[in-house]
């Protein structure tokens, strides 16, 4: 496995921690939101925004930028946290999550928020749009990459498999899906609600390069994205095994925190645990 400098690992791990702090704080302040799935994906998203993505916060519409899409739109707070930290908009906006007139709404809206490359909220649609962007990149001869964050419950949607088939068929090696495999959805465990497993085998069968990692291990995350960039002739999915609510003891593995905001007291405790209290 590739070696990454401790400085880089530490920097990205700390960025992920910071993103988690923003997520908890903004959801608590808004008194509504989805903390669990934002916290679980924070490490994989931090690695992209603060290391891997070719992007320029001052030019959100730069034609040659890598495209980052959140197909699981309910993880919007994580997206906003990353965009704000990168400088797409002032971090003071975090305090206005879900407020009237705010640029940060309950689900991502590309018409409101700089850096949001695609609106989402209705699950299962982002991979198809990523396909379109990846195809456009190929037709235009551009070397940007397209990353799309998928939820594990989301892959129960049929459209995901239409899109998976198409990406495999078109050999979209400029496309990288990131699966936040935290094992929980709003009504319970995936395997109880509607079991999508075996997940890696399914994607392989659709013609994808599959990389399975611990979605909280920064070295594995970086190596996965690097490997994905080197694979030719097929799209890659990074399946990150994660813990829903990661980083906050009472939110970890807790289905109740899929879509429920922490109270003021819980927020305080969470921020202390995350080291930003």
């Amino acid at each position: 496995m590739k070696k990454y400098s401790p400085e880089l690992i530490n920097k990205l791990t700390d960025k992920a921690r910071l993103l988690r702090c923003h997520v908890v704080e903004m959801i608590a302040r808004a008194e509504s939101g989805h903390p669990g799935g934002s916290l679980s994906a924070a490490d994989m998203i931090a690695a992209l925004f603060f290391h891997k993505l070719r992007h320029d916060p001052l030019k959100p519409d730069w034609a040659d930028r890598d495209r980052m899409l959140f197909s699981k739109g309910h993880a919007a707070p994580l997206w906003y946290a990353a965009l704000g930290e990168c400088g797409y908009f002032p971090k003071s906006e975090f305090a206005r999550l879900r407020e009237c007139g705010s640029i940060l709404q309950g689900h991502p809206d590309m018409l409101k928020t700089p850096g949001v490359n695609m609106s989402s909220g209705s699950l299962g649609q982002g991979l198809s749009i990523a396909n379109g962007m990846a195809l456009a990149g190929r037709i235009d001869g551009k070397d940007y990459r397209v990353y799309v964050l998928l939820g594990d419950g989301e892959i129960q949607e049929g459209q995901i498999w239409e899109a998976a088939m198409a990406a495999g068929h078109y050999s979209l090696d400029n496309l990288c899906a990131v699966l936040d495999f935290n094992g929980l959805q709003i009504d319970g465990r995936l395997q109880d609600v509607m079991n999508p497993e075996p997940i890696p085998e399914k994607w392989r069968a659709f013609g994808w390069n599959v990389i399975e990692i611990d979605g909280h291990d920064m070295s594995q995350i970086l190596a996965a994205y690097d490997d994905a960039g080197e694979v030719k002739g097929m799209p890659t999915i990074v399946i990150g095994k994660t813990v829903k609510g990661k980083g906050v003891s009472f939110m970890e593995h807790a289905i109740g925190f899929h879509g429920v905001a922490p109270t003021e007291e819980e927020c305080k405790q969470a921020l202390e645990e995350l080291g930003c209290g």
């Binding site: 034609a63 695609m118 396909n131 379109g132 990846a134 899109a163 068929h169």
Partner: peptide
């Protein structure tokens, strides 16, 4: 895109968002 109209619309959107 094959017999997959939902994906067809998404692919169209992705292409349109990239200037097509």
């Amino acid at each position: 895109v094959g017999i997959a109209e939902q994906n067809m619309v998404g692919v169209a959107a992705g292409l349109a968002m990239t200037g097509y």
